[in-house]
């Protein structure tokens, strides 16, 4: 019984430490959302997304996933993709980005609370997601170009 009590106390004090970081961060996220910070950053972000082959329509699900996560954001993401305004090649790039990098606010808050430096929580995920998507985009461009040339020669 003493052991379970020890675990309970440890768990509850951990939750309290996390709450002190998660609640202020959620307030900041709410203020950022209400002030349309994302829309204001759109110009800068649009260019960065173009380098990995995403149009504005394709960038939207990625932004939702990065800020709100796959479970909170899944409804919005899936219905946006189901509307069919995003090309199949963009769906593949979005899939890779979302898989490696999402819920950057919540996931980061949890690990910040147990003492992990911010740099290690944000930079590896963003860099890996961006580089993988860039590589995939370049590969798909190269393949499309080769197919096109092949057709031109045979035709």
């Amino acid at each position: 019984m003493g052991i379970m009590w020890e675990g309970l106390v440890q768990g509850l004090s951990g939750v309290w430490v996390i709450a002190r970081i998660v609640i202020p961060l959620m307030i900041l996220l709410e203020i950022a959302g209400a002030n349309r910070i994302l829309e204001r950053l759109n110009g800068i972000m649009a260019r960065m997304f173009r380098w990995i082959g995403l149009t504005e329509e394709g960038a939207f699900p990625v932004v939702v996933a990065v800020f709100f996560g796959l479970s909170f954001g899944s409804g919005v993401i899936i219905s946006h993709l189901d509307e069919g305004k995003v090309s199949p090649r963009e769906v593949r790039i979005i899939g890779v980005f979302m898989a490696l990098c999402h819920a950057l606010v919540e996931d980061t808050a949890i690990f910040l609370a147990v003492g992990v430096p911010l740099f290690f929580l944000l930079v590896p995920r963003l860099a890996a997601a961006y580089l993988c998507c860039w590589g995939l985009h370049r590969f798909m461009v190269w393949r499309e170009r080769r197919e096109f040339q092949g057709k031109a020669v045979n035709g």
Binding site: G7, L8, G11, L12, V15, I23, M26, L28, I31, I110
Partner: peptide, 24 residues
Amino acid sequence: GALKGIKVTLELGKIVVPTTIVVT
């Protein structure tokens, strides 16, 4: 924002506390 934060805290508390007990 505070309500969302409390909601997340409760969600995670439901998992963190049983896990710490089991692991201990």
